Simulated scan of single mutants.
Amino acid sequence: MRFAPILLALVTLVSTGLGGTAAIRLRDRLHLLLGFSSGAVLAVALFDILPEVFAFDHGASYMPITALGFLAFFGLERYTAMHRAREHPHLAETHEAELGAMSAAGLAFHSFLDGVAIGVGFQTSVKVGLLIAFGIIAHDFSDGLNTVTVVLAHGKSHRDAIFWLIVDMAAPVLGAA
Rank of each mutant, 00 (worst) to 15 (best):
R84C: 10
R84K: 08
R86F: 14
R86W: 09
R86E: 13
E87L: 04
H88D: 02
H90W: 02
A92I: 09
E93C: 06
T94D: 02
H95E: 05
H95Q: 07
E96A: 14
E96I: 01
E98K: 08
L99S: 11
G100E: 00
A101T: 09
A101M: 02
M102T: 11
A104H: 13
A105D: 03
A105I: 15
A105G: 09
G106K: 10
G106M: 05
L107M: 08
A108Q: 04
A108L: 01
A108R: 09
F109S: 08
S111T: 07
S111Y: 08
F112H: 02
F112S: 00
G115M: 12
G115T: 10
V116S: 03
V116M: 07
V116H: 11
I118E: 01
I118R: 07
G119Y: 13
G119F: 12
G119N: 14
V120K: 13
G121V: 03
F122Q: 08
Q123F: 06
Q123A: 15
Q123V: 07
T124V: 14
T124G: 04
T124A: 12
S125P: 01
K127H: 08
V128N: 02
V128R: 01
V128K: 03
G129D: 10
L130R: 10
L130T: 09
L130Q: 07
L131P: 03
L131T: 14
I132V: 15
A133C: 06
A133T: 08
A133Y: 05
F134M: 10
G135P: 06
H139F: 08
H139W: 06
D140I: 03
F141A: 10
F141T: 13
S142K: 07
S142Q: 04
S142A: 07
D143Y: 00
L145Y: 05
L145N: 09
T147I: 00
T147S: 04
V148Y: 02
T149Y: 10
